[in-house]
């Protein structure tokens, strides 16, 4: 009888263990998020997505904690110090949106040596011990020119709006644009730095416009399309096709123009919800799953067909977004193996 009871208990215990297996392994794990910058709509949406998804995950006991930290200034040295603090605080995993792909490698190495899982996304780190959920920024540049080739088979003049000088995202997108433009009939006649901000882009474009020939289209990096449109609107030039970057003000302007005169363009960027993808990947790694070190994030593209729908779900001042689930992360991990 006693033995039978014991046996029953063991069986019951194993069943419970087996059924909660997927969750229980990371229930006591703490994940920290080191973010280098929060000063634009994309980053704000990213932090909100993180809070929403990880808040739910903590509540349901998937992980013990998922705290987000943002450095007060967008500086690699500060972020390195922040990561070192996280090591001291004893987190099990650190998710990073890095200020620099290389300048915090030292701190990332320290974290790995302390047995911490490091997952970087968007702003990835090159340190081999970390996981990378990278955006193919080059492809993002090429896609823009590809779209324009379809629209204007005869080519034309392009104005390029770049991001922040010296930042690798800027170099990569720009390299993609130039690569694709070289093989096309398009010619890049001007290039300005818009720092991914509408006001800076507007000033920069207004400054260069008088010196430029007719512009067929404007290739951008996101966060600068609306500024460019305003700069063009202030002149008597015809409105070129401006590639947008999924910002609400850009989509709104595009939708208004479309209603007025059938204006068409395309918009692509990375959904800020990619932070939640990184969270799930970190959770999977902590759970002992085998995950390839390099993963690629899909683009979130807005076309004329889904413009109205995306615009409706994007809050004012924010950016078009999707949040990822555990299943999305598992699919991504499986597809990369």
């Amino acid at each position: 009888m006693k033995f039978k009871n014991m046996l029953m208990g063991v069986i019951a215990g194993t069943t419970i263990l087996a059924s909660t297996h997927a969750m229980a392994d990371t229930a006591d794990k703490r994940i920290a998020f080191s973010n280098n910058y929060a000063g634009n709509s994309w980053r704000q949406a990213m932090l909100q997505s993180w809070d929403k998804v990880t808040g739910e995950a903590v509540k349901t006991g998937v992980v013990a904690a998922a705290d987000a930290f943002t450095t007060s200034e967008n500086q690699a040295t500060e972020q390195a110090a922040q990561i070192q603090n996280m090591i001291l605080q004893g987190y099990d995993a650190i998710v990073i949106d890095a200020a620099s792909p290389t300048a915090i490698n030292g701190a990332v190495r320290e974290a790995c040596d302390a047995g911490i899982t490091v997952v970087s996304f968007d702003g990835i780190v090159t340190e081999p011990c970390a996981w990378r959920i990278a955006v193919d920024f080059r492809q993002m540049g090429r896609e823009q020119v590809k779209y324009l080739e379809k629209r204007y088979p005869d080519g034309g003049n392009l104005l390029e709006i770049r991001g922040l000088a010296g930042v690798f995202v800027d170099d990569e997108i720009s390299a993609g644009i130039h690569e694709a433009a070289k093989d096309s009939k398009f010619k890049i006649v001007g290039s300005v730095h818009g720092d991914w901000a509408q006001d800076v882009a507007q000033k920069a474009v207004a400054g260069i416009l008088p010196s430029l020939p007719d512009i067929t289209a404007v290739v951008t990096q996101g966060g600068d399309g609306y500024g460019a449109a305003r700069a063009f609107a202030a002149t008597d030039r015809p409105m070129p096709t401006i590639i947008m970057g999924n910002r609400q003000d850009e989509l709104k302007w595009w939708s208004d123009e479309h209603a007025k005169n059938g204006y068409e363009t395309t918009s692509l960027s990375i959904a800020p919800g990619v932070s939640t993808l990184a969270f799930w990947v970190a959770q999977q790694v902590l759970n002992g799953k085998e995950v390839a070190k390099d993963l690629t994030v899909p683009f979130l593209r807005v076309d004329q067909d889904n413009l109205a729908e995306m615009l409706a779900t994007t809050p004012e001042g924010s950016v078009a977004n999707v949040e990822y689930s555990l299943e999305d992360a598992q699919t991504l991990i499986k597809s990369t193996k």
Partner: peptide, 17 residues
């Protein structure tokens, strides 16, 4: 010293200094 710690550099690495 900074490069020794970070193991690589970035043109904006020390602006805060």
């Amino acid at each position: 010293a900074l490069v020794g710690l970070t193991t690589s550099a970035d043109a904006n690495i020390a602006l805060r200094y």
